[in-house]
Amino acid sequence: MTGRIARLLPSPGGIASAALGFAILVALWWSTSALFHVRAVILPSPPAVWQALLEMAEAGSLRQDVLTSLSELAWGFLIGASAGLLAGVALARSRALGAFLEPLIETFRFIVPFSLVPLVVVWFGVSIAGKIFVVGYACVFVVAINTAAAIQGIDPLVLKAADMLGVRGWRLLLQVVVPAALPRILTGLQLALAYAWVSVIAAEYVGSSAGLGYLITNAQSGLETAKVMAGMVVIGILGICFSQLIILARRIAVPYATSSGW
């Protein structure tokens, strides 16, 4: 019987599956808070959280927090991913540069990005520059390592065939190297975007004056649990949007690469 139901279920890892999970969670949550009369400071009911969300949206503070977090994400991801792409190409294509960069990456990779948070608060204060620094730092290594692996992993036969057909220079790069390496590079970017979004929230916990991370810690110190959960829902929904964006980009850019859920 379960086999027949399983065929009706959305594919794992997709947005439909996540929506179903959300429905299950809300049902569990609602029944727990209604049946056991949990105090609102521990577990507010879903309508209370919805109410808190509406209040913040009407006051305009939610919009400001979301915009702050998004601009930190955009700048941090842009800077970190570009640096990572350049470093990855250098690692893969140049022996000397690669030998120079590899120990650098292997050293700095182990410095936890979140351990930079107090440092950037001292350096940059509450401005978004420090958050961008942390977010960029969290992205750069995963992009560099995946890009290097993607370029090194190109089938040498493909390169030999291109060479035999007289494809060189820019045409080799654009028509052979990029299409062959792009799926793995996109995997790196996908991971980096997820890391970046986590780091935005994490960097806003300490020493900031706006953003979704600030919103939930601030609400926590005021014991406004409904606001905390509303903020978490916004963080989750934006996270789903980003991952769908990358999946869409993947489908457009590399329709030939197969991908699967878990």
Binding site: L9, P10, P12, G13, G14, S17, A18, A19, L20, G21, F22, I24, L25, W197, V198, I201, M232, V233, I235, G236, I237, G239, I240, S243
Partner: peptide, 10 residues
């Protein structure tokens, strides 16, 4: 599905 949703809330 539950994990699929919760995974997105870091």
């Amino acid at each position: 599905p539950l994990i699929d949703f919760l995974r997105f809330i870091s």
